[in-house]
Design a binder for these strands. Structure first.
Lengths: 136, 136
DNA sequence: TTGACATATACTCCATCGAGTATATGCTCA
DNA sequence: TGAGCATATACTCGATGGAGTATATGTCAA
């Protein structure tokens, strides 16, 4: 059996990874933002992101000192369906809601996040990330 | 975090369990039919069904010497969504197609399966299961 | 070039999982 | 009551997963 679907499910059966994917569904993010939002030790975030990367769900790209993670594009059909379903399921769980709330705050306060998340406004693309990212 | 969603994902990250759930989505089945369809050792089927039962995805009911498994009713929202999504994802995988094919054969040959699966035709409900179920 | 920061990797420990084998339980029928 | 069938449980073993700690790597800026 094509391992894809199983791989996806294995990626989805950890709370931290669910939260990471849920956030990534809103747009690319760097590790330090995940740390801020999830309030989980750096090493855990990093390892879970590595896991997701090894299984092809996300890709990473260095930008100066920061690693930017985003969902794989183009996403295979199963992944797309699963992430949509996750999105629907997650409504009832407070953690995900508060993650979203924190993400919005970050977007407001950190020019960079807002910009990468919705790349329509390209003014200053890649130039607005402050020294410690968003003055974290 | 309410463990429900994670529990569901953990149940979904094994191929045998995916196949079991996929079949149960079509209607109740007894263990011997799972064996016939999946061609997997009895003990494996039994243990995976126990796993699904422990996590509330399926229920079991004895009928004479046979154990009839069915999806939990009413299914919680997440489970419903997930099983629907599984259904969609699974289209591309030959295993699941051939499982369905075998299920249809069983329904044709085994009065009992056909009857339990679509309980509209109630004639002889519970009486038509032959000695060794469907003469397997 | 040194120090600070962001992130990744290596290593250990413990829990869980899945497969296999053997055996137990529950039911039916002769 | 004993045999046979359907199913479940106990036990072992090896693989994988997740947490924590320590350390390495890559980048920037002074």
């Amino acid at each position: 059996m094509d391992p894809k679907l199983l791989e996806i499910y294995r990626c989805l059966c950890d709370e931290t990874r669910l939260r990471l994917l849920h956030l990534l569904k809103q747009g690319p993010l760097c590790v330090c933002h995940f740390q801020t939002i999830l309030d989980v030790p750096q090493v855990a975030i990093s390892k879970h992101l590595a896991y997701l990367r090894q299984h092809g769900l996300v890709t990473a790209q260095r930008h100066e000192q920061w690693m930017i993670y985003r969902l794989s594009e183009p996403s295979p059909r199963e992944l797309h369906l699963q992430l949509q379903c996750l999105q629907d399921c997650v409504q009832a769980y407070p953690v995900f809601k508060s993650d979203l709330r924190r993400l919005k705050t970050l977007r407001r306060d950190c020019g960079w996040v807002a910009e990468v998340a919705s790349p329509k406004n390209k003014g200053g693309r890649g130039k607005r990330m402050p020294a410690a990212c968003c003055d974290k």
